[in-house]
Design a protein around this nucleic acid. Structure first.
Lengths: 335, 335
DNA sequence: GCTGGCACTCTCCGTGGTCGAGTGCCAATA
DNA sequence: TATTGGCACTCGACCACGGAGAGTGCCAGC
């Protein structure tokens, strides 16, 4: 009753079930896979695996299917597999001529959804703290203005602020000029104190403090967090294996980006190369029958890419694709 | 055999079918709705409506369901209904404290999806032609740079350009300064000729023409067209009435924004208050069993908001909600 | 510790029969 | 002429039944 063989049986069950979407029986396993033992032996192993909670039968006298714990064990015993060559080429082609950060993210997410046939998720790279390059103010009506902050690492942030009351043109222009003079090239605490001092000057426009806050906020690390996703149709596609009524909550969870972000962050904190959450491990009711494979890319640990699909997914393939895309994204972003 | 009564019968069929999602028979109609005639009469009317192609029976001896043409007739004979008060209040609350254009769009789309229980779509307001306010260039590595164009009407566009070869810092800075001097405050053809002349000057950096193009492009009308959507889960929700296998193509169509944009534009061109495309009228295979209700908002005809759902949708309600959101959006955008 | 065999238990699927909603048509009526 | 009540008919939905087949657990033998 070798421990090894039982792992092999589990692996075989997972692979077969993922491929066929049908409970797998002892006989079929003994025949097709080259385990070299009879179906009776496999039945014994199955009984033990079931006691350990790794597999289950949907109803008496049906084949077995892996439980969440079973998938977990399967994934944990998985050796990193190579990235298929066609994928490599696809990635290189797809991402090579992106115009824009936005474009890179968009292409990545589409590509990943195609490679994995799952829902792909990419989190926008969040800022490292960076210096102010230029601040622009544009009037919107009498009492509002749009602040545009261009930072040294080529990010653009925009936000509107209330002016409180009508401000004369000269005062308006002067404020813009001064903010640029004071803030340009500064970042972090230095920037905050410099702009704070400026805003506190007597005779300053009343909205100076607000403006200062916005500029400081725009250059701080991690201000903007957005996720983009693609391939939601893969959830609904025939053979995804998700029940019709479980799809709606998943779509909701995706649109509720906050939820997804928190989850991705938790996963990133584990710091592995690629990390996997299976079924209930996501700690979200809506994602109970889905799994997420995620990896971070770039230098900091805040940039994330992942794929989401039914727990019954092709883990090795998905992990390889996520790893590959993460790697290429790193290369592009770290330029 | 009054023409009027037949319309009433059709209306009753549509309303009943939308409510129950089940084929409606002559007896049920005669009983519940106050048509004041017997079921036999209704049967006669139904026979005529069926000849006209407005209703059909899924199989012999079942009730009738409206065809696409039936919905069309129903919608065409519809009087504009009032916007329910709770909706009015919801809209006012939801949109009042938006920070940002992006924020307005995002809130609108979420709101509309909640009000209609359909997929909501909002197209970003596209630019009217506008003047250059400021151009910024940020180096990205040796051979690429990010161009940021802030235009007079507070839009920010960014794009990267190749520099072709390493450019000295002074030349780089000079180019930025000159572009701002030449372009600032100009728009349209004037801007194009001015920047064209500048780029053609002898001794100019090799990427001057590219830069000029980007700046001109960024201020042209209709450069950026994006749609944002929300409520995709409504497609999958129980009782949406869509078959599981028709959902995937719809999700694909949504992600393929180009397709959706073209369709919305066609609808806008009809110029009605609210326009409706039913089933095959969308001219897209994937949207064959869905309908779209759309309206434009703002001054120009390029800004669009709409709701997409199964052909069997609550047209009066959806139309009212779309109209309401469009109206409020107009108010916000036209500030 | 592995294997073959056997009895048992399920689900799946096709059959056949009943039920009832809904129809079309027709003759009678206002 | 339009409407109505009545009647025979059709066809899908539902249910019960039963056989087939896949898969299991257990046990005795190697």
């Amino acid at each position: 009753m070798s421990e090894e063989r039982r792992q092999a049986v589990l692996r075989a069950i997972v692979e077969d079930y993922v491929a066929t979407h049908e409970p797998v029986g002892s006989k079929a396993l003994a025949d097709s896979k080259g385990l070299g033992v009879s179906s009776a032996t496999i039945r014994n192993d199955m009984a033990i695996l079931e006691e350990e909670g790794l597999i289950a039968q949907p109803h008496t006298s049906a084949g077995r299917i892996p439980t969440d714990a079973g998938y977990r064990s399967f994934v944990d015993h998985l050796a990193a597999s190579a990235i298929p060559d066609p994928h490599k080429r696809a990635i290189a082609t797809f991402l090579s001529d992106a115009v824009d950060l936005n474009d890179v993210v968009e292409r990545s997410v589409r590509l990943l959804s195609q490679l994995t046939r799952q829902v792909a998720v990419v989190q926008y790279p969040s800022l490292r703290e960076s210096a102010v390059r230029r601040v622009e103010l544009v009037r919107l009506g009498l009492e509002r203005a749009l602040v545009v902050v261009v930072s040294a690492d080529a990010r653009v942030e925009q936000q509107t602020i209330p002016l409180g009351e009508a401000t004369a043109d000269e005062a308006f222009e002067r404020a813009v000029r001064e903010v640029n003079e004071v803030g340009q090239g500064l970042s972090g605490a230095t920037l905050a104190t410099a702009l704070g001092a400026w805003a506190a000057q007597p005779g300053q426009v009343p909205w100076a403090a607000t403006l200062a806050d916005v500029v400081v906020g725009a250059t701080r690390a991690g201000t903007v967090e957005r996720v983009m996703f693609a391939g939601t149709s893969n959830l609904a596609r025939a053979g995804s294996g998700l029940e019709a009524d479980t799809i709606a909550p998943v779509l909701d969870a995706l649109e509720e980006q906050v939820l997804l972000l928190r989850l991705l962050h938790e996963m990133a904190d584990q710091g592995d190369d690629v990390s996997v959450r299976i079924g209930a491990e996501t700690h979200h009711e809506a994602l109970r029958s889905t799994s997420i494979v995620a990896a971070n890319y770039g230098r900091d640990t805040l940039s994330l890419v992942g794929a989401l699909g039914p727990t019954r997914m092709d883990y090795p393939g998905t992990m390889a694709a996520v790893r590959a895309v993460a790697r290429y994204l790193s290369r592009v972003v770290e330029l």
